[in-house]
């Protein structure tokens, strides 16, 4: 439970629809009529299978959809009181520089391979001080690396991404995302590419940094376990829509939507020995598809 009285949300998405090009003439409705809000200091989760539109939703809020003019956005995204749909590049740049940070799935490809780690963190703190490096900024970047779980940040800051392990790279991405002190952090499958043991430690790091900096968090994952342990509220997405939302405990204990029920059952069947192996039945998918068309 968030201590703050719930007034206006930090970010509010209303009736969002995103259409992405997939080929020369084809396109896909990746997100359809999604409503979502996150309050200051709140941690929410978006769960869903791949292709459910959860990542596209996250990227829409962070302004990181492909720049192609064929990408079509409709509805409303309000970040910190400002309407961002139809906003110009400068306004988006403001949001990305100060307000919304993003952590991506694959820690290797999302770091620039030819630039030292420290510099990549510094760039996030002060994008304009690239040519003449500022010692103050350098000092700050070391602090953020320490916050992201590196006991000896000086050493790490001199390394190139390929010299680090997967877990360390993910911590660097966390440091980059928090270094600009955003109000909202969007983590898109931040631990999917990592080993289970490393996963746990990175999640702990993420949890502590977010609460220490009092940042709101949107955690996007297909892994219910990861989302359950980190968030207060959950949105369940399927085929581009939010099919169910509610507090984490309610969703886990008493899911309403048949898809959520099936999803939870299939997850339990993997971890609990007395539940038979279960995967979301095709009939359910067909039924949901029919409802969609209707």
């Amino acid at each position: 439970m968030s201590a703050e009285p719930e007034t206006t949300p930090l970010a509010k998405v209303t009736d969002l629809a995103v259409n992405l090009p997939t080929g020369r003439k084809q396109s896909v409705d990746a997100v359809r009529h999604v409503n979502l809000e996150v309050f200051a200091g709140e941690k929410i989760g978006i769960i869903g299978e791949s292709g459910s539109g959860k990542s596209v939703t996250g990227r829409s809020i962070a302004g990181l959809l492909p720049t192609s003019p064929r990408v079509k956005l409709e509805g409303s995204i309000i970040v910190d009181g400002e309407e961002m749909i139809g906003a110009d590049a400068a306004a988006w740049q403001q949001v990305r520089t100060h307000k919304v940070g993003m952590i991506f799935q694959d820690p290797l490809t999302y770091l620039n391979p030819v630039i030292r780690v420290g510099r990549q963190v510094e760039e996030s703190i002060a994008p304009s001080k690239w040519k003449n490096r500022d010692p103050v900024v350098q000092e700050k970047s070391l602090n953020f690396l320490r916050l992201a779980g590196f006991p000896s940040p000086t050493e790490v800051s001199r390394k190139y991404p390929h010299e680090l392990s997967g877990g360390m790279r993910q911590r660097v991405l966390i440091a980059i995302a928090i270094a600009k002190r955003p109000r909202l952090l969007i983590a898109d499958e931040p631990t999917t590419a990592l080993d289970t043991t490393v996963q746990k430690r990175v999640l702990e790091t993420l949890a502590t940094t977010v609460s220490e900096t009092q940042t709101s968090l949107i955690l996007i994952s297909h892994d219910i376990g990861v989302v359950a342990s980190m968030t207060e509220r959950i949105y369940v997405m399927y085929r581009g829509r939010v099919v169910e939302s509610g507090s984490t405990s309610q969703i886990l204990s008493a899911p309403n939507h048949p898809y959520t029920q099936a999803l939870l059952r299939s997850v339990r069947s993997l971890s609990e020995p007395d539940v038979d192996l279960y995967s979301i039945p095709l009939e359910l998918r067909r039924k949901l598809e029919m409802e969609d068309v209707a």
């Binding site: 962070a62 302004g63 990181l64 740049q93 403001q94 949001v95 990305r96 520089t97 100060h98 919304v100 940070g101 993003m102 991506f104 694959d106 490809t109 999302y110 770091l111 620039n112 391979p113 990549q120 760039e123 996030s124 994008p127 991405l173 980059i176 995302a177 600009k180």
Partner: peptide, 10 residues
């Protein structure tokens, strides 16, 4: 992908 990271830095 790292271009996305750069974009996210503003």
């Amino acid at each position: 992908d790292f271009v996305d990271t750069a974009r996210s830095k503003g």
